[in-house]
């Protein structure tokens, strides 16, 4: 008799835990999307700044670099998607490979920004913009800097998730950590889709005399 009741209880408790997870998942998803809406206003403010100060002009940026880093970032979104699919199918090894590949591509993107766009290591590449030089430098650094900050946090997020997965924390049914990391990564990519043309393509390139 006792055994049976315990059994029933256990089943009920299990059900509850399952419902709890589903309920919390719904809240988490809504919360994350609200966060994105909020952040859209931050990035929107930067775009507004760009159009307010630059109008229909833009600085002379190295188009090759812009194209390369953008493609790298887009590729990283593909590999992130593959990582998430692997997790959904329960293939941990493939997951690890693709999520690390994503982080690697993210680092390449960052390197492109810091070394080439910013010219932070003059020995490797001589940048011609400075944050304090004029409105072009200021806005380029502000937009790429704010975006890079998000990429960095995304990479940190990836390493946390990778480590947790390694320790066996996720299952094909329950991997909110992976899911949120992936959506976040895609979101940061989408932001770049708006930033790239605003910085590199729209308007006439001008060469300023100082």
């Amino acid at each position: 008799m006792t055994a049976i009741t315990t059994g029933v209880h256990a089943v009920a408790a299990h059900h509850e835990a399952h419902d709890d997870y589903a309920v919390q998942l719904r809240r988490n998803r809504l919360g994350l999307w609200l966060f994105f809406i909020s952040e859209a206003f931050l990035f929107g403010g930067l775009l507004a700044t760009r159009f307010y100060l630059w109008g229909d002009t833009r600085p002379e940026l190295d188009q090759a670099i812009g194209l390369i880093v953008t493609s790298v970032l887009l590729l990283s979104s593909v590999s992130m998607r593959l990582a998430e699919t692997a997790m959904e199918k329960g293939n941990r090894q493939l997951f690890s490979i693709f999520i690390l590949l994503t982080a690697f591509l993210g680092l390449v993107f960052l390197g492109g920004v810091v070394i080439f766009e910013w010219g932070l290591i003059p020995a490797l590449y001589q940048g011609h913009l400075t944050p304090w030089g004029d409105k072009y430098g200021a806005v380029v650094f502000a937009m790429t800097g704010m975006h890079a900050l998000h990429v960095v946090s995304g990479i940190v997020f990836i390493f946390i998730v990778w480590n947790l997965a390694r320790k066996g924390h996720f299952s094909p049914q329950r991997h909110w950590g992976v899911e949120s990391c992936a959506i976040y990564w895609h979101y940061v990519d989408v932001v770049w889709i708006f930033f790239y043309p605003a910085l590199y393509l729209i308007g006439n390139a001008v060469h300023l005399s100082h």
């Binding site: 700044t49 100060l53 944050p131 304090w132 004029d134 409105k135 430098g137 200021a138 806005v139 650094f141 502000a142 300023l208 005399s209 100082h210």
Partner: peptide, 10 residues
Amino acid sequence: GMPFFNPLYN
């Protein structure tokens, strides 16, 4: 010294 708001003349 990033010039967002202060004008700067060449």
